[in-house]
Amino acid sequence: MSRPSPLGTVLRWGLFAWMSLVIWAAFFYAPAAAGFQGQSSRIVFFHVPTAWVATLAFLVSCIASIRYLRSRDPKEDIRASAASALGLTFAILATVTGSIFARIMWGSYWNWDPRETSITFLLLIYAAYFALRAAIADPERRATMSAVYAILAFVTVPFLVFVVPRIYWSLHPDTIINTQGRIKMDSRMFQVLMGSLFGFTGLFSWLYSLECRVEGIRRRRQHEVL
């Protein structure tokens, strides 16, 4: 059994300390935003990063899928599948945190706001990706077809994220990068949000590398059994 590298251990502890600091700062350093009910605005420090990671995972999955189609290297298929699995998890987390915020601010957990609609589509696309993987027995064909589907799905994302909210009127607060290209946020809130985005991206990278290794081991075991 290989021992973990010292750098990896330092990075993992660094990530633990950073995320602890982000959680502390989200509740005790950043002020509550004006115009929101009670402390509800603090959920932004967790909701936005989970939504960001869900989208980032989609991008990673799409890039790995393109690389698979070019190289036919099974490692790229493992990367695409691992990124999609994490993307699905983070999309569920973004939906749940958004739903809690919606209940506090608008009185209902779900009202088909364009942003809620977009994240639902993203969840459905991820779920469909895994339904496709489950329906093809041959590993090479499964990798190719799911890579093609991941790319097809990725091209619809800009329409979901940018076009659908423009066509429908939204209750959702202005996104961080709004149509005026200006950041409307208290500086301390902005610092915590950036810190949280950085921390969640680090968390995704760690989970992603773990998931890739686990999937690699699982496939090697399957290969040995067969």
């Binding site: 589509f121 696309i125 339904a131 496709l132 589907y149 097809l152 799905a153 659908v164």
Partner: peptide, 26 residues
């Protein structure tokens, strides 16, 4: 894509609808 998979009928709707939902809205 689905022509090369198992349980094609159900899979066609499952794979198509998420891709088509933005189109449906437009």
């Amino acid at each position: 894509i689905i022509a090369r998979a198992m349980s094609r009928g159900a899979l066609f709707s499952v794979l198509s609808l998420p891709l088509l939902l933005p189109l449906l809205i437009f």
